[in-house]
C-alpha cells in the first residue's frame, strides 16, 4: 500500500522536476540577451521559410522588363532586378534553397564527421591512425577549393554544392569529436558503465556523445553559417544554383553587374545572408551555455 502511495508521489515529483527543467532552459536562453536576439532572428527566418510563398506579393519568376532595376518603392519593397522581377518575392521563395543547402550540408558533414571522430577517438590505435591521416589529407585542401573541385567533378547543381560543402565540413567535426571523445572515454563513469556490462554502442552514443555535445553544437552553428556562406559563394561563382533560381547567393551574383546603378539588387540578398549567419552564431553560443547542466550557477 505505502509503496503505491510512494510511487504516486514519486511520479508527481518526476513530472514537476521535468517541467522545472524545461522552464529553466527557457529562462536560460531568455536571460542571455545575445542568444535571445539570435533566436528571434532565426524565428523570423523560420517564419519566412514556412509562409514565404504565401506572403510574397509577386511571382518570383515573372519578368516585367518595363519595371526593371527599380529601387525600393511601396509597390516593390525591395525593388526589382535587371529583368523586373520583385526582389522581395524572390528572397522569400529562395529562403528554402539557401537554408536547405546549409542545413543539409551540415547534417551530412556533421553526421559523417561525428561518426568518424567517435570511432577514431574511442577505439584508438590503428583505426585512429587511418582516420586521422584521412582527416589530415582533407584538411590540407582549402575548403572552398575542395568544394570547387568536387562541384566541377560532379557537375553544377545545388545538390552537388550541398555535397561539396558538407564534405569539407567532415574533418572539422571529426577532429573536434575525436579530441573530446578521447578526453571523455578516460573518465570513471565510462569505466563504470563498462563494468555494468554496457556494449560499445551504448557507451559511445548514450554516454560519450551527450557529454561532448557542447563543442558539437558550437561547431555546428559555426559550420552552418560557413556552409551557407560557402554555398552562396559557390552560387555566386556560378557553380551552384543556376540563373532563374532565387537562391540568395545567385541573386547576389546577378546583382554584382549592377552595383553602381542598382546597388539594392545585391544589397538585400547580402543583408539576408549576413543576418542569418549572425543569428546562427548568437544562438549557437547561447545554447551552449543553456544546455550544459554543469554550468548552472
Amino acid at each position: 500500500m505505502s509503496e503505491n502511495v510512494q510511487a504516486a508521489t514519486l511520479s508527481q515529483v518526476r513530472s514537476q522536476v521535468k517541467k522545472k527543467k524545461r522552464k529553466e532552459l527557457w529562462q536560460k536562453i531568455y536571460s542571455n540577451k545575445a542568444a535571445l536576439a539570435g533566436l528571434i532572428i532565426l524565428s523570423i527566418y523560420a517564419l519566412m521559410l514556412i509562409f514565404g510563398p504565401l506572403l510574397s506579393p509577386y511571382d518570383p519568376y515573372e519578368i516585367d522588363l518595363q519595371n526593371k532595376l527599380q529601387g525600393p518603392t511601396l509597390d516593390h519593397l525591395m525593388g526589382t532586378d535587371d529583368k523586373g522581377r520583385d526582389i522581395l518575392s524572390r528572397i522569400l521563395y529562395g529562403s528554402y534553397l539557401t537554408l536547405g543547402v546549409g542545413f543539409s550540408a551540415v547534417l551530412f558533414g556533421g553526421s559523417v564527421g561525428i561518426l568518424l571522430g567517435l570511432v577514431a577517438g574511442y577505439y584508438g590505435g590503428k583505426i585512429d591512425s587511418i582516420i586521422s591521416r584521412l582527416i589530415d589529407v582533407m584538411l590540407a585542401f582549402p575548403g572552398i577549393l575542395l568544394a570547387l573541385a568536387i562541384v566541377s567533378a560532379l557537375g553544377t547543381s545545388l545538390i552537388n554544392v550541398t555535397i561539396a560543402v558538407g564534405f569539407f565540413s567532415i574533418p572539422m567535426f571529426a577532429r573536434i569529436v575525436r579530441g573530446s571523445t578521447m578526453e571523455v572515454k578516460k573518465l570513471e563513469y565510462i569505466d563504470a558503465v563498462r563494468t555494468l556490462g554496457a556494449n560499445n554502442v551504448i557507451i559511445l552514443f548514450r554516454h560519450i556523445l551527450p557529454n561532448i555535445l557542447s563543442p558539437i553544437i558550437i561547431q555546428a552553428s559555426m559550420r552552418l553559417a560557413t556552409a551557407i556562406l560557402s554555398a552562396a559563394g559557390l552560387s555566386f561563382l556560378g557553380l551552384g544554383a543556376q540563373p532563374p533560381s532565387p537562391e540568395w547567393g545567385a541573386m547576389l551574383s546577378a546583382g554584382r553587374d549592377f552595383l553602381f546603378n542598382a546597388p539594392h539588387m545585391a544589397l538585400f540578398p547580402g543583408i539576408m545572408i549576413s543576418f542569418l549567419v549572425l543569428g546562427l552564431n548568437l544562438l549557437g553560443d547561447g545554447l551552449r551555455d543553456a544546455l550544459d547542466p554543469r554550468m548552472k550557477a
Binding site: 570513471e188 563513469y189 563494468t195 556490462g197 554516454h207 551527450p210 557529454n211 547542466p293
Partner: peptide, 23 residues
C-alpha cells in the same frame, strides 16, 4: 564478459568523475 561483469562491480575513488553528469 559483459554477462559475467554483473557479479563484480566497482566503486571508484572520485565521486565527481564516476557519475555521468548528463544522466
Amino acid at each position: 564478459l559483459r554477462v559475467a561483469r554483473k557479479d563484480i562491480q566497482i566503486i571508484f575513488q572520485d565521486p565527481y568523475a564516476s557519475l555521468n553528469p548528463r544522466r
